[in-house]
Every structure is written in C-alpha cells, then in structure tokens.
Design a protein around this nucleic acid. Structure first.
Length: 563
RNA sequence: CGGGAAAUAGCACAACUUGGUAGUGCACUUGGUUUGGGACCAAGGGGUUGCAGGUUCAAAUCCUGUUUUCCCGACCA
C-alpha cells in the first residue's frame, strides 16, 4: 500500500472517549473507529491486523482437523427458547421483530445452531468425532462496554464445537483443542495463562480460560508459582482455616455509635478485621438471604450461586436491609435474623467474634456459632493473595487478565435440550457429548497492543503487523529517492513481503512518527544516502539505525524470523 | 439498573457563572519560505453549538424534556 491516495489517517491527539491504552492507540492510528458504545469499525489497517490474527487461528484450527463453516447471525428467537437459554441471556441478547412480528435475536453464541447442523450428519457412532467452527460476529448487549475492543457489543469470535460419542472421546477432542489453543497463543507472543474457570452461561463440566495478562484485565487470575495451579478468582477454592482455640465467652450487646463498616469497627474496637463476621443481605432469585463471612474477606457471588443453584444475585438495597434487620445498613447480624442464612465454612471455626446486632448503633461481641442458626454452609469467599494454594499450600499470587480464549466441556447439556442423539454399537440411542471452544480475535488485537507498545505507539509482532515493512521516502521530489523507494516496494512485494510506502508530501518527522504509531516491525528509510547506494534499516523496537546496501534490503529482511 | 460528568468544525478544547455577530490549537485549501523526528508566514474554507420545546427584544449561555457518550458501581463468555 502506498499512502499517497490511500485511505489512511492518524490522529495527533487521543480521543476523549477511550479509556484503555489499546483503545487509544488503535483509534489514534486509524485502525478502528467507534460507531457507538461498544461497536467499532475496522478500518483498512485494523482489518489487516484482524485478518492476520484470524488466519493464524484458522491455520492452527485446520491443522487440528477442524472444518470451517459460516453461520447466520440473525436467528429466530425460538431456538434459544427450545434450548432453555432465552431466559439465561435475558437482556444480554439483542432482540428484534420482522415485518410479520416474528421474534428474532442476534446470536450471542452459536451452540444451538451448530447442534442443528450436527443433526444433519450424526446418525450413528460412526459419524463422530468431528469438530466444526466458524469466524462470525457475536452480539451481546453488554451493560457497560469499555476498554476499546475488550468489552464490546458486536465482536468477531472464532467458535468451534466438537461432537463425540462419550466423555472419554470428548476428553480427547478437548485436549486437541487445548493444545491447538496453546500453539495459537504462543504464535501471538502473548503473555497468557490458562486458568480454571466457571462455565457460566455455557453450562457443562469443565472450562478453562486463556487469559492475556494485562493491568486492565477484568478477570483476576489466581496463580501458584510452585505447582502451576491457576484459576479464575471466580472459582478459586479457599483452603479452610484451622480451628481457632479459645475458650467460649458469652455474647454481649455493645454500643457502637455510627460505626457501620468493618473498617470503622476494627478501629473503634481496636481489633483485627478477622475477628469480625460480616453479614451481607442479598436478593437471590427474588428471595432474601444473609451471607456471613469473615470480616477480612470478600464474598464470591459465583460460589454462592453455585451453592444454591441460583441464577441471579444482587445486594439488597438499603430499604430492604432496614426492613429485614430492623436497623440501618451496617448493623446486620445473624442472631435472630428471620431470613435464610448462608455461612462461610470458616465461621464454624471462629470463636468469640463480633457481629451486627440488628439494632442501629449496636453490635454483639463474643458471638459463637451456637448463638444463631444457619441454613447453608460452604466456601463462599474470595481467595486473597498469599492464601495457601489449594493443591500445594504455597502462597498464591494474583494477576489481572483479559479472557482471549475459552474452552468448555459441555457434556450432554445441548444434545439433551435439543435432542441430538446417535445409535451406538448396541443399537441404543445415546446423547452426543459436546465441547465448545471460543477465541476472540478482536480481544487478541487489543491484548497485543496492551502488551506490545511504547510511548510512541504500537509495536506489532511481525506475524500480525498490518505490513511487515514500512518504507519512508524522505523527499518525494528527489527523483532518485522516489525511484529507489518504488523499486524496493515492488521488489519486496514480489517476494511476498507486505510493505507500506509512505510517499506522502509531508515532512520526514511526520512520517517517522506515523510509522512508529502504527507499529510496523521494520522500517526502511530512503533518504540522502541513496546516492551512495545506501538506505537505513531499523527494527521498531531497536535504537540501532543501520545503513545497508539497497541491493541487500530484500535479503536482509528475508532473514528476519517470522517474515 | 443506581450514582456522577459531559455533548460546541474531522480531532482536542474555550466562550456558559453574569444571555448580545461562535473562538483557539491541530487537521484542511491557496501562495511563499522551509525540508532527516509532529516547520514558519500570509490569506482562506468548514458550525442550524446533540435533538425538541419553553423563557426573552435577543439563547451555545437560563428552564423543561429527550437522545447519546463517558466515568464509578451493579452486571458480564
């Protein structure tokens, strides 16, 4: 691509409505442009990057034996009703009607449709295994899109689905995909972690996430540097504490005026936060529950939902709390509370703790487990950094990550709800066992920028860069320079090396800055020294600017790794 | 969905408090001087101030409604 007379622009300043580094850089470099909240155009350069990412994924998927196809995105709502997921998605699904008032949705994920396709093929155990996939757009009406391409409402996803006769066979298909994903993310040079995750709206038994490590990550990764155990905070199990040995005291009401938070209370009573038990009132599937956990711990809503088999869970508002506890927010406690109580497993081991008294400005001290009743018990708290690893008891460390890929063992969830069966060797009808595997190319693009940039702009890894080489023509009135720049451009193209030529009528500084901003890996400068048969060669991240012979340019570039 | 902020040229912003011809920088056009890391001088073009009402002789400015965007939270493969 020659920049003169091409659709190419950059912005000198950051736009105000992007909050992440990747969002800012991608918009400023003219790769993407926001249309509305969480919806972006991919402009020519951005599309090239996205296509490069897709092609790497496609190559590895095809090598694994998967077959590509393409599904529609405008789907009759009915297919999600029959799978039972219409309600799961709720408002996350974009929904619309056609001219006859028939209900349609924009597909947020495509398990249902792939099952439809699989039904055409699968009759017998001989028809499996196979894996089919697509690159398609997904639509999810996120409550709060943010971070540029990271949380968006319309996005490209590679989604693959495996179909097997039983769990063992599915395990094999799953492992093939996991290995394929590792190869894919290795090729992007991403710093990533594979973590255990909750299966969320997909359902199924096992799920692992591929998380790109970045500061703006929306997920917290719990990592053991000793045994390699890694999981999403959502599902990270806590190791139960040891029984605290203390002689039991009897509970006592104390006056704690205007001390409603654990923080304040710890200061007021000059005690450690771990001596408190906090009581949180939640509305879970339209019923109120009290959740009790140690004062220094945060509630893990995923664990609570799993414990109760619940779908929705929100913190009760202050009116409800006051009605239930008969006290203003901050003084809730388990003693004589009339709603079901869920306690964290550690609480039974605590002695003489402090709880709210359900009376404004009062707490109980020296409360013990025998002082109140509870209905559910389990691990309902978040892991904390330096907690012992669930497997090897080494202190855990935390990182932030962006989920760029996710693999699931779905079991027979969809084959049951959508009636996908096959005949086995004994002529018996059985449900197909499925796996599904997603990768978000747009998120990968953003994650790469988050991980590979400097104060001048993006630093694309060679295999995803929109062009491998950028030629800067210093003076486009100098015939010699023009000739050489064009000759190099043609030569590189003839050698299948993607090249961009900046032949615009602009000052050199502007061209250098744009080149750095868009992040091409190799820069060739055609300037004064071309009279001596020399041009400059510079890698984006290196300071060294080498003079090389014009005749050596192609050879030098071809020797670079990954070209 | 709760709380907060904002919407003025392609981009970033000023003018709003105290109503009176809509301005600056970048970008763009023309001419000139420059020309290896975001040049300078001069002259220009580009706006129904998000939208709809209201108050007023007069609204970017005050009031009401509405839409959109962003932030914090909630939610989230």
């Amino acid at each position: 691509m020659k920049l003169k007379n091409s659709f190419f622009y950059t912005l000198r300043e950051d736009v105000k409505d992007e909050d992440s580094i990747s969002g800012k850089l991608l918009v400023r470099s003219g790769m993407i442009k926001k249309t509305s909240s969480g919806i972006y155009m991919y402009l020519p350069l951005g599309l090239k990057v996205l296509s490069n990412i897709e092609n790497i994924i496609r190559e590895e998927m095809n090598n694994s034996g998967a077959l590509e196809l393409l599904m529609p995105n405008l789907l009759p709502e009915e297919i999600y009703i029959s799978s039972g997921r219409r309600d799961n998605f709720g408002k996350d699904m974009f929904s619309l009607k056609d001219r006859y008032d028939r209900h349609y949705v924009l597909g947020p994920t495509h398990e249902e449709l792939f099952v439809e396709a699989a039904k055409m093929k699968i009759k017998s155990y001989k028809d499996m295994p196979f894996n089919i996939y697509q690159f398609g757009l997904k639509y999810r009406d996120e409550p709060r899109p943010r971070y540029g391409l990271i949380r968006v409402r319309e996005f490209c996803m590679k989604d693959a689905y495996s179909f097997d006769v039983d769990d063992d066979a599915c395990d094999k298909s799953y492992q093939i995909m996991k290995d394929t994903y590792k190869r894919i993310f290795d090729r992007f040079n991403l710093d990533y972690k594979i973590v255990l995750a909750s299966s969320g709206a997909m359902g199924g038994s096992l799920s692992e996430e591929f998380q790109a490590v970045t500061e703006i990550g929306e997920d917290t990764l719990v990592i053991c540097d000793n045994c390699g155990y890694a999981s999403n905070l959502e599902v990270s199990p806590c190791v139960p504490i040891k029984e605290i040995k203390e002689s039991l005291k009897s509970k006592e009401l104390i006056h704690t005026p205007n001390v409603g938070t654990i923080e304040d209370l710890a200061n007021y009573l000059k005690t450690d936060k771990s001596k408190f038990v906090k009581t949180l009132i939640y509305k879970i599937d339209d019923k109120f529950y009290a959740c009790l956990l140690p004062g220094n711990r945060d509630l893990n809503e995923f664990k609570v939902k799993k414990l109760l088999g619940a779908k929705e869970m929100t913190l009760a508002d202050s009116e409800d709390v006051e009605r239930i506890t008969k006290a203003i927010v901050g003084f809730a406690g388990p003693v004589n509370l009339e709603i079901p109580i869920i306690i964290d497993e550690d609480i039974v081991k605590m002695k003489n703790f402090v709880v709210g008294a359900n009376k404004t400005d009062y707490h109980y001290i020296n409360v013990n487990i025998s002082d109140f009743k509870y209905d559910y018990i389990g691990d309902i708290k978040n892991t904390l950094p330096n907690d012992p690893c669930f497997k090897c008891h080494h202190p855990l460390s935390f990182k932030k990550g962006i989920e760029v890929g996710n693999i699931f063992k779905l079991g027979t969830k969809y084959s049951e709800s959508l009636d996908l069966k096959y005949l086995d060797q004994n002529n018996e009808l059985k449900h197909v066992v499925m796996g599904c595997y997603g990768i978000g190319p747009g998120r990968i693009m953003a994650a790469i920028v988050e991980q590979f940039h400097d104060d001048k702009g993006i630093v694309w890894p060679i295999n995803v860069a929109p062009f491998k080489v950028g030629i800067v023509l210093i003076d486009n009135k100098d015939e010699k320079q023009v000739e050489i720049a064009n000759k190099l451009y043609t030569e590189l193209q003839a050698n299948n090396i993607e090249v961009l030529l900046d032949d615009r009528d602009l000052r050199a500084g502007v061209k250098f800055n744009d080149m750095d901003l868009i992040g091409l890996p190799i820069r060739i400068v055609v300037g004064k020294k071309c009279n001596e048969g020399l041009v400059e060669f510079k890698m984006r991240l290196e300071d060294e600017n080498l003079n090389i012979k014009i005749t050596d340019v192609v050879k030098t570039i071809k020797n670079i790794k990954n070209i």
